[in-house]
Each structure stands twice: as C-alpha cells, then as structure tokens.
Design a protein around this nucleic acid. Structure first.
Lengths: 151, 151
DNA sequence: TTTCGTGCAAACCCTTTGCATTTGC
DNA sequence: GCAAATGCAAAGGGTTTGCACGAAA
C-alpha cells in the first residue's frame, strides 16, 4: 500500500553518489555502508530504517540494524539524506541530491501523495515575511484524507 | 525554554469543560480524570503526557502514568483534545475548545511560535483544489529556524 | 598498525497492555 | 453489586549505546 503514488524516477545515475561523498569526507568504505547507501538510492522515494535493514539483510545476513542507524546518522550530519516524519512514529529517508518533495499523508488509507518542492513556495515566503521564520520545508508532511477516502 | 512565545490566554472559563463533556458521554468522574483534565486546561498552550503526569503526581502521589495515557485516549476519541507532533518524538495535547493554532518550531533554540488557525487557509484551499486532499490542519507543526536564530 | 566500523546484547524512551483490585454510580 | 477505572508491573516498538572484535586505510 501507499506506493502507487510514487512515480518518481532515478534520473541521476552517477554511481553511488552518497557513498563517494562519504568517502571524500574521510569516512571508510565498507560493504555495509555501500549496501545501505544503495538501498536508499534505489528506493523509489522514501525508505525507513527498517526497510533499509530488510533490504540489506536480504543480501548479507550478518548486518546489524544498529549499523543502519549509525550510517543514517552520518548521512544526516553530512546533509546527504533528508529525514521526514510520516507519522505513526515512522521516519523516512530520502537522498537530498534527488530533489526535495513534500508529502500528503492520508490517515485513512495510508496513501502518500508526493508534491514537488515548489508546492510550498508561497507558504515559505509568507512565514519568512510575517514571522522572520525560515521554514525548513525539506521535511514537510501534511496529514489529512485523500480524494479516494473523502468521497 | 520555548515557553516565552506562548502568550495565549484562557479566555474560556467554563468550569472543567472537558470533564463535564466526558461525564455527559457516560464516562465516570474520578479524581484522576479531574486532575488530568485540569492539567490540560491550565497548560498555557500544549502539554505532553509526561508533563501532565508530573503535574498530577505533584498533587496525588499514587497516580499512574498509564491512567494519563488512557484518559488522553478517551479525550482524543471524543475529539476534546488535539494531538500535535512537535518533533523530538514528543507529542503534545491541547483542548480542542480553546481554538486551534499552528506551530513554528525552531530547531535551534527550541522556541515554539504559535500561529492562529487562519494562517494556513490558503494552503488548505490549494491542497483541496489541486489534489482533492482535505488537510487536517489541526495538527500542523513546521520546523525551521526563528528570527533570533537566523540573524 | 592503528584507528574506525561493526556485531551483539543490553539499555533506552515513550507508550501500551494484562490482570487483580478498587471505585463510581 | 457490577461494570468501569485504576495501579502495578511487564512488554512493546523503534532507536541508541558500551564494549570487544574485526576490518579499512
């Protein structure tokens, strides 16, 4: 469920972008990091820590989920992935370089509708002008009910 | 910290509004519920489960936090309180009857700026028209950095 | 070889649940 | 008196941490 709305492709085929950027920052190249990064880059859209773990473990059984969390921590610090709270205590990750987008999360059917990054330009501008607040709209998820569910 | 932006008052002084509404729904009146509801209604703005618990326990030592969670569950079901995720894995509660508002959360200093419920009317309308999505904007928190922090 | 990264297990935080007891009505 | 609410303690889910071992540079 909730994946039929993800129509975003991977137009950007530089090999292991995130991985090479980690390496350039002086971090070591390990098979685990390589697989974790691959899972993130191959995900159609956003992917949770558990999903990354599942993907990696299906290749190498001996990977531990704490390594996934530690790698995500690194990637976040370096600004290479963006974290989005999609509700239900679930946090998802997305490579920053793939472009930002926003989420409309239907609390009835669980569908996630993606909006491109320009969708909230007006909102952002309003908040800046009125409140001097620089909204970090890489992270925005709005909850509600979708077209199908509020018929 | 983060409380200096809460300048909202309790203009609505009917005695124990939430409590009487619970009673009208057939639920029993207990000292625990009364204290929990009081803590919510007296909070300047939004209050977490732990904060409610702390407030109640300071009066009657024998209250248990599970009772707080169970009462919040009831109040949510009845639509008497609104739940807002202010980040940091912490969820806050607010009496629905006090009027809705939105939050700008500064991830640098932790300040929470309140916006009144009309602030996102345009946004809501845009989402409805463009996507048929009925945004539930009782819950909205936007993260970013505030005027003081992005000087 | 030496520092960094990993696996493992245990701890963590917040929230939920099962069950026996107490309480409101 | 009886159903509903509570306290307690234990479990749950997702995430983090300490530590000794293993692997990258």
């Amino acid at each position: 469920m909730s994946d039929h709305n993800h129509i975003q492709q991977n137009h950007n085929h530089e090999h292991s972008g995130l991985l090479s950027q980690l390496a350039e920052s002086g971090y070591r190249m390990t098979p685990q990091r390589s697989m974790i990064v691959e899972a993130i880059e191959n995900s159609s859209n956003h992917i949770s820590a558990e999903e990354i773990y599942a993907s990696v473990v299906s290749k190498y059984r001996h990977v531990n989920i704490s390594t996934v969390y530690r790698t995500l921590e690194l990637l976040k610090e370096k600004g290479l992935v963006t974290e989005t709270n999609l509700g239900n205590g679930r946090v998802s990750y997305h490579p920053t370089g793939k472009g930002q987008h926003h989420h409309l999360v239907c609390h009835k059917c669980g569908a996630i509708i993606d909006l491109d990054e320009t969708a909230f330009i007006d909102l952002k501008e309003m908040l800046r002008k009125k409140y001097g607040f620089l909204a970090d709209l890489k992270h925005l998820a709005i909850f509600g009910s979708c077209l199908k569910c509020n018929s």
